[in-house]
């Protein structure tokens, strides 16, 4: 409050131009955000801060991979077979080049393959979670608000799906989809099938939580007020209930992201995920494990550590978010 009034008093003193007003509004919004409970508890949690920094660094590294990576591992022109099996931080015996994290059998820089691999992993993770979220939130809203036999059918399907391990569901879907895809398109389609397979195995969490939250909100009087003012079921679900159930959805989305990244890695490790032409972290780990016992440990270790750091930091962020948004769960 006081910061806001300060901002308003400030305006006449500075030049009252368009830009300074916009800037003023921005500073005000910032000071409000900085003063909020959310930022406050974030600053007080070292785990959250460290996880956030690690996750942010990894995501930025992946997004900006073409800028950071010394090589483009998918461009055969930049590869030199002579560089194969370089140890980390040591000059290559033939070319004298130094690779931070070493190279693999084809002379690809492991650091670069990790950055590019994370792009695939993160893309699949985000897209799968987005898919699961849209599906789960929609079905959860309907099951919670409409209820009746429609809700019962939705939730029974969810229950049945929960009895299968998620990875099994994903493999099943992946396998079926593969059978329907023409051979020449399989590699292209693989990523999209992966996204749908992981998404379909994770919507249940969203649906369950949204259904529960929706049933709570549905009983509240503001929903009754909207009903008697003639707002239809769709309008109430989208305009009234959805904004009020997004808190827990955000928490689940974060934790699901970690799960999706691991699921993708698992599928790729098992060889049913991302193809070697577009290697994700899981594919890299699968490739690397072949060299573990021949002394080239770095090909396996660094992608694994990256996967661990990524999944763990996202997961810890999700835990912290859950504590902040719902103190009762603590």
């Amino acid at each position: 409050m006081s910061q806001e009034t300060k901002g308003q008093n400030h305006q006449p003193a500075t030049s009252p131009g368009e830009t300074s007003q916009a800037g003023n509004r921005l500073t005000r919004a910032w000071s409000r955000a900085a003063g909020s409970d959310f930022i406050w508890s974030f600053k007080r949690s070292p785990v959250a801060v460290v996880s956030f920094l690690v996750a942010l660094g990894l995501v930025l590294g992946a997004v900006l991979a073409p800028l950071f990576a010394p090589h483009n591992p998918f461009d055969p022109a930049t590869l030199n077979l002579m560089n194969g099996f370089s140890s980390p931080m040591q000059p290559n015996a033939f070319t004298g080049e130094v690779f931070w994290l070493g190279t693999d059998d084809q002379g690809r820089d492991v650091f670069s393959t990790i950055l590019y691999g994370m792009r695939i992993s993160l893309f699949v993770g985000f897209a799968a979670v987005a898919f699961a979220m849209v599906l789960g939130v929609t079905l959860g809203l309907i099951a919670g608000y409409v209820g009746g036999w429609i809700g019962a059918v939705i939730m029974r399907i969810a229950d049945v799906q929960l009895t299968f391990p998620g990875i099994l569901v994903a493999m099943l879907i992946f396998g079926i989809a593969k059978g329907f895809t023409p051979l020449e398109q399989r590699d292209e389609m693989a990523i999209w099938v992966l996204i749908i397979a992981i998404g379909l195995s994770e919507w249940v969490q969203f649906a369950r939580v949204v259904r529960g939250a929706t049933m709570v909100e549905k009983g509240k009087e503001y929903v009754q007020a909207a009903r008697l003012n003639g707002r239809g079921a769709g309008g109430i679900m989208i305009r009234h209930i959805l904004p009020n159930v997004l808190g827990p959805v955000l928490v689940i989305a974060t934790i699901s992201l970690a799960l999706a990244i691991i699921a993708e890695a698992t599928l790729s490790f098992l060889g049913v995920g991302a193809p070697p032409t577009q290697p994700s972290l899981g594919t890299l780990i699968r490739i690397g494990q072949g060299y573990l016992f021949s002394g080239e440990w770095w090909i396996l270790l660094f992608p694994s550590v990256t996967l661990l750091a990524l999944a763990l930091s996202v997961n810890l962020l999700g835990d912290w978010l859950r504590d902040v948004l719902n103190p009762r769960l603590r």
């Binding site: 509240k220 009087e221 503001y222 009754q224 007020a225 909207a226 003012n229 003639g230 707002r231 309008g235 009234h240 904004p243 009020n244």
Partner: peptide, 25 residues
């Protein structure tokens, strides 16, 4: 309603809440 805390949507601005009987139709 009885509960003044539950009868207003916490995510809506007061102006939108008050206009709802008109805008909903």
């Amino acid at each position: 309603f009885q509960d003044p805390y539950a009868s207003l949507n916490p995510r809506w601005k007061v102006g939108d809440i008050i206009a709802e009987p008109v805008t909903a139709r």
